[in-house]
């Protein structure tokens, strides 16, 4: 009996000590970790848009995030888009559409675009703007990229199931919704097999695929043609295959209507990525169409 008391006591002390050490390490490192993640995300976004570093991007390039929320109110479910206000304005606008995409209303949200980057601040400001007992649940964000006031591209951060766990990816679309680039942010696919999805010869296959091609894209299990592989490897880096940028673009354009060539020994991972990207593109095009229509009909001024 005495033994069990000492055991309980010592184990509790050991757990508390371990907890204190881990908690201390978390407090000390969390700030730097978040900062790194943000820097990395920004770097990936710019490289997808075609700029090598943060410095080489022109000042006229602007990134406007759109946050999508699911709103549960008395009337049922609605979808809210948190948009940045017209240039020079401090606040943001919440545009509310119903599930079929019909305009329901708009509310001003007192939140600066800088503060809106933090989810906790948004979560506090949105219910206040909605009023009543409406609840808002964060769904996802998309980023509209403009250069000199003209829309240039869209950046879609997304998550879809892979072979065993979720894959986080960042997708860039051109103005005509053809794919500008794909980057895998986080994945836990098997190293050497599904892990190859991060390699250029797989992820660059999505490049230049048009919206039409994406709608019915599939995966083929035939080997990757040699010339296509060389072009994919050379794309967006020091060309190892001795191909110029024009040659790369030409070969990629040739294959832009084709299906995705599956990775050897990782058909499921290849299929998951293809299916995930297809779903991301289709949903985004549908939602953006409805949002743009509502913005145009209601004459809501936005900076993009």
């Amino acid at each position: 009996m005495k033994d069990i008391l000492t055991i309980i006591f010592r184990l509790t002390v050991a757990c508390l000590l371990a907890g204190a050490i881990m908690g201390g390490a978390f407090v000390l490192t969390n700030q730097a970790k978040r900062h790194n993640a943000e820097l990395n995300e920004r770097q990936v976004m710019l490289s997808l848009l075609g700029y090598a570093s943060v410095k080489s991007a022109p000042a006229s390039l602007k990134l406007y995030p759109i946050y999508r929320y699911l709103i549960t109110a008395k009337g049922g479910e609605e979808i809210g888009y948190l948009l940045p206000g017209e240039a020079g304005e401090a606040g943001m606008t919440l545009v509310i559409l119903d599930l079929d995409g019909k305009f329901v209303g708009q509310r001003p949200v007192t939140l600066s675009p800088e503060a809106a980057k933090e989810e906790t601040k948004r979560a506090a400001a949105i219910p206040a703007a909605l009023g009543g007992d409406a609840k808002a649940r964060y769904a996802d964000q998309t980023i509209v990229v403009t250069e000199g006031g003209q829309r240039l591209a869209y950046l879609l951060p997304g998550r879809f199931p892979g072979f065993k766990t979720f894959i986080t990816a960042m997708l860039a679309l051109n103005q005509d919704f053809s794919i500008r680039g794909l980057e895998i942010m986080e994945s836990e696919e098997d190293p050497g097999l599904g892990g190859e999805i991060v390699q250029k010869y797989f992820k660059n296959q999505f490049k230049a695929k048009t919206l039409e091609a994406m709608r019915k894209i599939g995966v083929v299990k035939t080997p990757l043609p040699d010339e296509y592989r060389r072009a994919l490897e050379a794309d967006g880096g020091t060309g190892s295959g001795g191909l110029s940028a024009e040659q790369v673009a030409k070969i990629e354009a040739e294959y832009s209507g084709k299906d995705i060539y599956a990775l050897t020994g990782a058909t499921i991972s290849s299929r998951s990525v293809t299916e995930g990207v297809r779903a991301m593109v289709q949903k985004f095009v549908y939602r953006l169409g409805l949002l743009d229509q509502a913005l145009k009909e209601q004459k809501i001024a936005v900076p993009f």
Partner: peptide, 21 residues
């Protein structure tokens, strides 16, 4: 249990320090 706890603590600390710096 104490060994497991020690290992888990060090793994977590190393993980967080590496991720940060």
């Amino acid at each position: 249990p104490t060994y497991t706890l020690t290992i888990a603590t060090w793994v977590t600390v190393i993980d967080m320090v590496l991720a940060a710096y």
